[in-house]
Computed example of a mutant assay.
Amino acid sequence: MNHHTWDAYSRSYLNIQKNPASFQLSLMNMLRFEEAEEILDAGCAGGQLHQYILQQKKNNCKLAACDFSIEMVKLAAARMLKFLNNPLHGGISEISPEEIENADLSTFDISSLDCPLLEQNNYKIFQGDVQSLPQLNNNQFDIYISNMVIHLVENKDQAIQEAFRVLKPGGKIGIVIPVASGNVMMKTLTKCFIEAGLIKEIPFKPTNIETREDIINFMSKHGFQDIICWNQTIPFDLFEINDNYIFPQFKEILDKAPKEQVDQFYALYKQEISNRLTQNLPFTVESLSLIAKKPL
């Protein structure tokens, strides 16, 4: 998927993003991010947890963030500006299209967002591709976080090599990737798409990395050490069809499909939600989470 797909999806993605943010909370706890001097959130989307990080990090710690989508960058910046302008009432979930468009982005360009208020709070956000980050120096960061991102990039090896480059010796990386076999959300959507005749097979597999051994070997190959890896499962707050947790690769299919097939899909999806709730079970997503160190 290209950045235009994510640009178009940026505001709808907020509903989904707040769920796997739980993975990032676990990562930050395991990485002890409150001890860091400089942190990078690589592939930050709408910056769901940046408010929390700014409140919990050391005062002089710098937080940098980037995303492939310029609209995601604008959204994250607008949310942080709202919070910083009014910390007591700067909720970051309720951001209107007007607030995004009217945020003080006067010096904004496609590669960097510079703003005095953000700079005063040691926060910088820019558009960037995790596979190549020329904006960042070698050996710059104490912590590199990438939550639900690496599986989406075309060249995963290059992305991890770039993470290794920008980390300081002794710096720590924390990544999360979904496990296809444990992704009830994706399995349910796929089933409904197939039954509605919209697709013949699974259109999207997150990654070939499915086990702890797979990801540990992958990270070891790129020089990381002291690896800790765990499986983690989180629930989604999906209770009715109006919650509309439709991922970008599926939304593109629906946008092009005949109305009768779209209606059939939503009827099937609604029934699947009802069935799950009847079993007193949430929809869930499983991930592989990992932390590791760059050697001294």
Score class of each variant (00 low, 15 high):
N137A: 15
K187A: 15
K200M: 14
I228A: 04
G128W: 02
S132L: 08
N102R: 09
I92C: 04
K172E: 14
I234Y: 01
C192S: 04
K191M: 05
A163S: 04
I173L: 04
E154H: 12
L118Y: 11
I216Q: 13
T233C: 05
N208G: 07
T211I: 06
F218I: 02
S220M: 12
P178S: 04
D226E: 12
L113R: 03
I177T: 02
G128P: 10
E154A: 13
K200T: 15
K221M: 12
L117A: 10
P203K: 01
T107Q: 14
I234Q: 03
D226H: 14
N121G: 12
I160F: 09
E162P: 04
E213K: 15
W230M: 08
V153Q: 07
P97H: 01
E162M: 09
F164G: 00
V149Q: 03
S220W: 08
W230V: 08
E99K: 00
Y123Q: 00
W230T: 13
L136T: 09
I110T: 13
K124Q: 14
L167E: 08
I125R: 06
V149T: 09
I227Y: 10
D214G: 12
I202Y: 05
F126W: 11
I143L: 05
S132W: 01
Q120F: 09
G171H: 01
A196T: 09
I202K: 03
G182T: 06
K200G: 14
I228T: 15
L113W: 11
Y144C: 12
Q135R: 12
R165V: 06
